[in-house]
Simulated scan of single mutants.
Amino acid sequence: MDQWLKQKKALWMLAIVFLLWMGSGCDAHSGKEDKGSASSQKGEASEVIRIGYQKYGTLNMLKARGNLEKRLKKLGYTVQWSLFPGGPQLLEAMNAGSLDFGHTGEAPPVFAQAAGTPLLYVATTPPNPAAEAILVPKNSPIRTIADLKGKKVALNKGSNVHYLLVQALEKAGLKLSDIQPVYLPPADARAAFEQGSVDAWVIWDPFLADAEVNGGARILMDAKGLPKQYGFIVGRNGYVKQYADVAKTVIAQLNKVHQEIHSSPDEAAKLLAKETKIGEEIWKRTLSRRGYGVFPLTKEVVDAQQRIADRFYEAGVIPKRVKVEDAVVVIKGQ
């Protein structure tokens, strides 16, 4: 009987030791998966930052250079890049929680705020009024914005050119309801434009430059002379607040790329042509008409963005008013 009790006691001891060992193993594993413990994993590149980019923005140049990956690896991160046809699609992904950072024009964040997307304005880029335009075929009888009345106009809904179209129509005494908007992403819009399925196309570079050179297009009107439209680096609210070190690194590296492009545009055109499969001459034209630099948001920028948001609401394009200032974040040391 004593022998049996000793054996039973030994088995219980072994079971306890095994359970303790399993518990410590599970704790170690959960530490690796903990999103909040990135600083303890420096050099292991175990955290992932998800960045959305477009063919137009300079994030594609940052991706091609590979410098951001090197910098963030030291902080314990890897970078996952995702290409989007436009800002609205990029911010839809952010709203779904599958994106942490991105670069868009002025209109997409307004639409996203109105839809409840948890975004933050992190930094701004200069206006590029010559880099977006309303196009018509070269031989089109359309000569003025007023001639667009009743016509089919293709655009990417909620993109920067949406505001261009609203403003252009207003200057000509028209409203969106006076034309037939056809909402298409850039590739589909170009096909419709070249096939004659639409009468005009509102688009941005490098698609604009390509359509001018290779698509038989004529500029009816660009954004010069209209209220300033800035570009924005945006981030997912919870991510930016938790990982300010990442946000600061992204902004610094992107600003560096801006300066490199500005000082060596021909070299940048070569690299971008390789990265995007869009011709080098198209990129030279694109880079010649854009501004450079990445800056903190000033009151002037926020006020300009607020005017755009108010105009969209007044035109009935977004369902509710948005307050831009509510989504602005200041990154210390930016």
Rank of each mutant, 00 (worst) to 15 (best):
Met1Trp: 06
Met1Cys: 03
Lys6Met: 14
Met13Phe: 15
Trp21Leu: 12
Lys32Ala: 08
Gly36Asp: 13
Ala38Trp: 07
Ser39Leu: 11
Ser40Glu: 10
Glu44Gly: 00
Glu44Asn: 09
Glu47Asn: 08
Ile51Leu: 13
Gly57Ile: 01
Met61Arg: 09
Leu62Met: 09
Lys63Phe: 12
Glu69Met: 06
Lys73Val: 04
Lys74Trp: 05
Leu75Arg: 06
Gly76Val: 02
Gln80Thr: 05
Trp81Ala: 07
Met94Ser: 06
Met94Tyr: 03
Gly97Thr: 02
Gly102Arg: 10
Pro109Arg: 08
Thr117Gln: 07
Glu132His: 12
Glu132Thr: 09
Ile134Asp: 02
Leu135Ile: 07
Ser140Gln: 12
Asn156Ser: 12
Lys157Pro: 01
His162Arg: 02
Val166Ser: 01
Lys175Gly: 05
Gln180Pro: 01
Pro181Leu: 00
Ala191Asp: 14
Phe193Leu: 13
Glu194Ala: 11
Ala200Trp: 00
Ala200Met: 09
Phe207Pro: 00
Asp210Arg: 13
Met221Tyr: 05
Gln229Gly: 06
Gln229Leu: 15
Ile233Ala: 06
Val234Glu: 09
Gly235Thr: 02
Val250Ala: 06
Gln253Ser: 13
Leu254Pro: 01
Val257Tyr: 03
His258Phe: 14
His262Asp: 04
Lys274Met: 01
Ile282Ser: 02
Trp283Tyr: 10
Ala309Lys: 07
Phe312Val: 01
Ala315His: 05
Val329His: 01
Gln334Asn: 14
